[in-house]
Design a protein around this nucleic acid. Structure first.
Lengths: 341, 341
DNA sequence: CCAAATTTGATGTACGTAAATCAAAAACTG
DNA sequence: CAGTTTTTGATTTACGTACATCAAATTTGG
């Protein structure tokens, strides 16, 4: 059986109360006694039974998720996952609240963050808009001792405790290599559809994509980025327009959301052309497009994993525990029509 | 605060003892009373506090992992993950034992399984060799009420409770599409290196691979499968031999283990040829080969996820709880040189 | 060396559930 | 309706930890 506090007390030759004082860093223990206990803990390999501890403490973790109010499938999916986490709340001792803010709006985000400074929840997860004001607001929270993790998109230069999302530079590079190899030695132009260069994840994907295309696929040239604000309608118009005007396009990389619009544009304007298309985020729309051949590959981040990881990290930080970075790494999924879940 | 057993007792107008009898299906409760309690549980939305229950029960789960004694990186990795799970045992209330059996040896596997029938652990996970004798031995265990999950490779027609591994047909199909698209319209032969057709995962990968190549890439033809028994030495000799004799080979699919040998053969015999190579399992060797361009893509199953999933499922089955299949789905990782972890 | 302050021990209660015991009540049986 | 069986209630202990209280021992300062 694993050792308990009683075993430590016996091993260290002190009382249960003293062990408790050491374990929970309460005052009133002499230095020598504290060391005796700590040695005993190490020697018999005691690890606190977290379940029992939480039971005794009756602790709950009030957490806040700040999500952009974007009308695209990915954000809806992210919302669903947070709701699923709320449903698991009783078992996980969490108490999760969601706040919606306008997308790509640093000011709104800062307002919300500053309000939370007062409320002092156990932890905050936010989809960051990458702006200095937001960074400062986050740093204020961090300095106030409130754990903060960025979700999906990171915040440059901030002191956030953790980023729960994929490596977007790697994602862009991967997209480039897939596109480049699928197109073999063909020569032509690549259209890139993004949401906004205001969010770091989109900027990084583009950066990685452009780097690999430039270095390894010189026969491909990248057209100026189309910013569709993750909005299906806007994406449709912009992409349809580009396809009409540019006849040299042989590939498309959609690195943001709003793929509904992209797919519609492709079906209307590119039926006769054999485009190679790579998109991000597996949704009902992109899945159908992958299956019918409109899209050739989908890069995906699993929103469920991201939400669960964010919660685990926030809880750990709230308790001052270490995070196993390797375990919290969010993988980049690559889907072809054959390995869809 | 979430409801407790006391709340149910009050709501149902019965005593705590009766609630306990219903919750833990103990005898001595009239049908009407039982229903009263069950209604109360449903109405106030009670969910058992598993942490508290486990604490009270002091329950542990003796589990057994049966792994093949193969000297390749993947199996070493699997072993490491099981050891990591052993390290987490105290926190997870598991008590995990590992048994090594000779690889591809149904008889040895059956012997071990039959011994476990006596020992009656809480659950068994095994890397199955796909043979009727093994299936019968597993079915005996299942009929004895012992939870059994297959790990990495499944067992045809058996009543095992769960399979913790990737969809190998999908994996084979994915490999075929990647290879086909990377090779574009090139014409030539594809060499396939497998471990053994005695294990179902390898058979299924081949099946999926061959199906897609035949249906969608008619310019490619598949050479007779090379069986390297997941052994690096054997794989080296067989692949080197094939590369020397067949000059029409333009692609290689390695669907099993022993890639150390494959890589050596490729470096020695195919420096001058531009082969497209897809292999399974990310190890130190395949990773290096992917980075230096010897391998073009790696399909991977995350051994850690498989082991953790197997444990979760075995525990759930031991307690007669339902498994959330979607959560236990093991994803197929696709690695290019750009998205390595 | 005495008083004050600090450190330690002893003990009890609580968290939510499991499991057991024994008594009381209710339901059946003939 | 008495006697038996079944069902229910009341109560207690336990799991491992947290936390509070009060008394006792030890150390410290003057």
């Amino acid at each position: 059986m694993r050792p308990t506090v009683h075993d430590i007390a016996a091993a260290a030759g002190v009382s249960l109360a003293t062990v408790d004082r050491v374990l929970n860093q309460r005052p009133g223990v002499r230095h020598v006694t504290r060391e005796k206990v700590e040695n005993a803990i190490r020697e018999i390999g005691y690890v606190r039974d977290v379940a029992a501890a939480n039971l005794a403490k009756g602790r709950t973790y009030p957490l806040v998720f700040i999500l952009p109010a974007s009308d695209n499938s990915f954000m809806h999916g992210l919302n669903d996952e947070v709701r699923a986490a709320v449903a698991r709340s009783p078992a996980e001792r969490t108490d999760i609240r969601t706040i919606e803010v306008p997308a790509f709006d640093p000011t709104a985000l800062v307002t919300v963050l500053d309000e939370l400074c007062e409320e002092r929840p156990s932890g905050i997860a936010l989809v960051a808009t990458d702006a200095p004001d937001v960074r400062d607001a986050v740093d204020r929270l961090v300095n106030d001792g409130i754990p903060v993790v960025t979700l999906v998109s990171d915040l440059t230069g901030s002191q956030r405790h953790h980023y729960a999302g994929v490596d977007n530079i790697a994602a862009g590079r991967t997209a480039a290599r897939l596109l480049g190899r699928f197109l073999s030695s063909a020569k032509g132009e690549i259209a890139v559809l993004a949401g906004s260069m205001l969010v770091r994840d989109h900027r990084e994907r583009l950066e990685g994509f452009a780097a690999v295309i430039a270095a390894e696929f010189p026969s491909l040239s990248i057209l100026p980025v189309i910013e569709g604000r993750d909005d299906p309608e806007m994406a449709y118009m912009l992409v349809a327009d580009a396809l009409s005007k540019k006849s040299g396009i042989i590939g498309v990389y959609s690195l943001g959301a709003g793929n509904r619009g992209l797919i519609r544009a492709l079906k209307e304007k590119a039926v006769d052309r054999s485009l190679t298309v790579i998109a991000h985020e597996l949704t009902a729309h992109t899945r159908a497009a992958l299956l019918d051949g409109t899209i050739d590959a989908i890069l995906n981040q699993n929103a469920g994993h991201e939400v669960r990881s964010a919660i685990r990290v926030l809880k750990a930080k709230a308790d001052g525990l270490a995070v196993i970075e390797a375990q919290e790494r969010i993988r980049l999924d690559i889907f072809l029509k054959d390995n869809l879940p």
